[in-house]
Amino acid sequence: MNSTRNLPQMLLGQARDILLISLLALGAVCCLLLALGISPADIASTLATGAVGSWLKFNHVLTVWVPLLLCCCGLLFTFRAGLWNIGIEGQVILGAIGTTLLLRADSLGLPPSLLIGLALCAGFISGGLWGGFAGLLKNRGGVNEIFGGLGLNFVAQGFILWLILGPWKREGIASMSGTDLFARELWMYTPPGWRVAPASIVIAICAFLVTWYILSRTRFGLRVKAVGANPAAAPLYSIRPDRTGLAAMILGGGIAGIAGGLQVTCVYHRLLPPISSGYGYLALLVVMLANYKAGPVPIICLLFAALAAGSIQLPITLQLDSSLSGVIQGACVVAALLVYGWRKSRKGGA
């Protein structure tokens, strides 16, 4: 068993896993569709045209891809540290709130582009603080990060509702449809014919590259990985597992906060209750499907985004519910867990 894993063997193993997972997941979904008397081919073509049928449609894919990729980056940090950051939804929401807070502060008299930049920083900070809060609850309060995070998600949901219906309510009447739109100059620049701000794509790609760099090319990244692999051994290498985990939570929450901030400045131009659109939870599925590795994340994000965007066409062309995309995504992840688990148990038994 002390052979070095060589690259071709590894790639072969991965290709086999991917094939198995897609066969299992898509096979199950196809069986379901056939049983319902729906042609899988129709679905596939509808999804494809829905996602890349036109420039505008592909734009829509990208508007999903940007926050999804950002959330995944945040999760890569926390998963690497061995933490299940289910509180990412709340971190996205808090990021959106932090950004909105600054964007509403027009009394500062700053130039718009600077204000947008500062607002995104505020999103990073507020998301990071929310993530750090869950981390502190774990370190100091003995609250498991899953339940602490989940609880903080609901708290964030309550907080955003209170803001929208209370202090930040629309001129005249409070409404669930969100706050007033920001002034035009506070919208991130979107060229004519585009639906997605090019700057947001750049930010997402940069965030991914930075995440990859920190995790694989810095001492901090290595320490995070070490703590995730074996917190008990960390003190022997002068690493504090609790602080390293907390740092990963803050950083991860911060990146998720940027996703929330971009939702506010680029997509909706206001704060509204479902601002996170469930991208945090979807990102958890993406990272699980990637088996917690960074490499495949952008591609899986793109596929998931295409599914989500393409499925909007399902009710229009085939009179089917758009939630089919979620079924496919979920089936992929469950199949992946099955395949990885099967591999692990075989390796352990050998």
């Binding site: 320490r223 990985k225 070490a226 692999a229 074996n230 008990a232 051994a233 290498y237 690493i239």
Partner: peptide
């Protein structure tokens, strides 16, 4: 393995950490 090493990390990564 369970008290002093990090499973999943390479020999090089252990040297970098130490």
């Amino acid at each position: 393995l369970s008290e002093a090493l990090f499973p999943g990390l390479s020999i090089r990564e252990h040297h970098l950490l130490a």
